[in-house]
Write a protein that binds this DNA or RNA. Sequence first.
DNA 1: TGGTAATCGAGACGGTACGTCCCGTCTTAAG
DNA 2: CTTAAGACGGGACGTACCGTCTCGATTACCA
Lengths: 206, 206, 206, 206
Amino acid sequence: MTSVAITAPRRSVQSHEAVLAAAADIAGRRGYGHAGIEDIAAQAGVGKQTIYRWWPNKAALFIEVYGRLVPAGLGAQDAGSLASDLTRLLQRLSELYADTPAGNILSGLIAEAQTDPSLANQLHDAYVAPRREILRSILKRATERGEITFPDNADFVIDLFSGAVWFRILLGTRRLDPTFTQQLVDALLRMVRPAMTMPADNQASG
Amino acid sequence: MTSVAITAPRRSVQSHEAVLAAAADIAGRRGYGHAGIEDIAAQAGVGKQTIYRWWPNKAALFIEVYGRLVPAGLGAQDAGSLASDLTRLLQRLSELYADTPAGNILSGLIAEAQTDPSLANQLHDAYVAPRREILRSILKRATERGEITFPDNADFVIDLFSGAVWFRILLGTRRLDPTFTQQLVDALLRMVRPAMTMPADNQASG
Amino acid sequence: MTSVAITAPRRSVQSHEAVLAAAADIAGRRGYGHAGIEDIAAQAGVGKQTIYRWWPNKAALFIEVYGRLVPAGLGAQDAGSLASDLTRLLQRLSELYADTPAGNILSGLIAEAQTDPSLANQLHDAYVAPRREILRSILKRATERGEITFPDNADFVIDLFSGAVWFRILLGTRRLDPTFTQQLVDALLRMVRPAMTMPADNQASG
Amino acid sequence: MTSVAITAPRRSVQSHEAVLAAAADIAGRRGYGHAGIEDIAAQAGVGKQTIYRWWPNKAALFIEVYGRLVPAGLGAQDAGSLASDLTRLLQRLSELYADTPAGNILSGLIAEAQTDPSLANQLHDAYVAPRREILRSILKRATERGEITFPDNADFVIDLFSGAVWFRILLGTRRLDPTFTQQLVDALLRMVRPAMTMPADNQASG
DNA sequence: TGGTAATCGAGACGGTACGTCCCGTCTTAAG
DNA sequence: CTTAAGACGGGACGTACCGTCTCGATTACCA
């Protein structure tokens, strides 16, 4: 403590982590909407002021929480083929939304963003853009492999994919089950691959 | 004397309408999240209790508001072909979300439903199910016309369609512009029509 | 409308009685302050409007209730001497306040009258004046019996008596016990009788 | 870390005073019964919660207000004789009830205490007991001066005095005018002094 | 004896105040 | 001099009653 001593945030790190942990925990147990700053501070053993020092509001805090829950490069690694890249991504998302409050937090943020344009921007930067980037790179990889020609409606295809996932998470059964996963991957492949996929096979379902 | 004579509760049509109108208006101007029961009551010229008498909470009220904003059979009428049926539906939705707070209300309800399972059910009954039914009937009509064979993954296709619309409304530019409309219709047709659409082009086999 | 036929209160009497009974009962069980018109109406099996038809407000209703609980000529009959007249009156009051909500109602009315001058008047006419009249007639009777000369500060003496009773009822132990009764009667006799009543006893000189 | 260190709640002196002042003012202008917590908070420039934090209910608040309005040792100082001690006390009370809402507040509290036994206790401790103590000390002083023998029914005499004042305040003309004052002092002296007071003097009135 | 107008119970209505909750800011005491 | 603890002003919540205002259903009078 003596030596270099960039004293600035005095003992922040611990508190910072405690706040994020408490926020995630409470959102997990009671839902984003019922997670109050007051509760979070109390559970984190932190003064409310400490929270407001670092995050301007609840939304900003939860964007960071979300960032912690969702690994940066989720689903980015090469699985060998377009189909397995997409399947892998969906599996990882499935686990994520099943095991963490990420889905709940996301929907809460989305709702709040409807009323708060600046939050909408933050949310775009923190969530939508990275997700799009990953899907885009998956498509690029497939192009390089020679599986597909890079589609000129790539952005649309990407949003179609994301939209399907969201719809499931927000409204349907929260699970991204294998059937759904396969259907979605098939749909994407079909949109992106030359038409002769047809023979008779591509669905076995369950 | 002391007869029993249980009379049904009689609600004031005027007040009922005034509340729905005020709710829609305020949500339109300030967003679902900032539409307080107190404001709605005041603007409707109604006691708060009158609102709580007929709706157990804000969500229930706004489900009814949403029902008023979105005509029951929206997009159900026959436009002559699958493509025009879908295009027509999207155009109607586009207008709806541009001209009314329906989109904002919907996203608010969705967010709240994350925490409240009973609301999730109501929302399903009031919104998801009817929308699915309409799309299903559009697909059936196309089958009867001989345009397609009714897809066995109809439910998936339908949710893909809805998901795409949602994604746009909740996160993207709020507009369902003509480009998007066309892309979505194309995508659906492709998923649902026999695969031989295009002879041999686009990309070699794989 | 033709003949005499003051048809006015059609089948009032039963309801009227039921309201008074319910009001007394509820005030007895929960206190004047917690006796709401709504509860009274419900318990009386009567519409609220029926209450408001006959009494302009809660206070007016309870003035009538009080009138029913306290017999008009309470303590007016001749008991043979000033001392027994007063003792008798106090005993009757004691029973009244022990067995009925009269005391509670009275104090509620008094409190409300602090803010409502018209109620203060009604209360005076309905309660204070009659009570004074009875005490005055007791004093008169004693004068006629030759027990006392009618005191020129009769009003003061009378209020002193009433004040003592009130103080007990409102603040002290609610009971007007025999000790208190005797002390109060003694005090009054002393104030009203020629001073030489007792030669040398009771208290030594000073 | 995580030391315990229970710190006592710290109340804002300014807010505290502002609330008491606002409460007194509003009760003075509209009466205890019409003084709402909401109005008091607004006029004091204070959140409602700040009131509820420090006082469990309206009655508790007004007990403290009453305590501020009525100086602790009111009428306790020696005025030279029993008669002047009592006269002085009554004059001070007269001013108090004329110039402040103390009387109004007191009657409101009394009424509320009829229904709430715990308030009755508080009221006893805050009002009745101190008043009795002062009168008792006045009697003691007179005893020490040799004016009287300390009466064995002192408590009764004291309550008689208080009762007379109350009766005036609650029901009669609110004023404790000089005539009344003198009558009450005379009455007390007569009850407490040896019997030979009589000659002819004891009333001059005004 | 059947029609009709009043009166009834029930309770919805516009309001007002309640006491609670939580926001984001400000203050205090302890370390 | 930063922190936790939590008091503060503010403002919405959902509840409880107020006194007024519809409703049918139920009389009791009049034809």
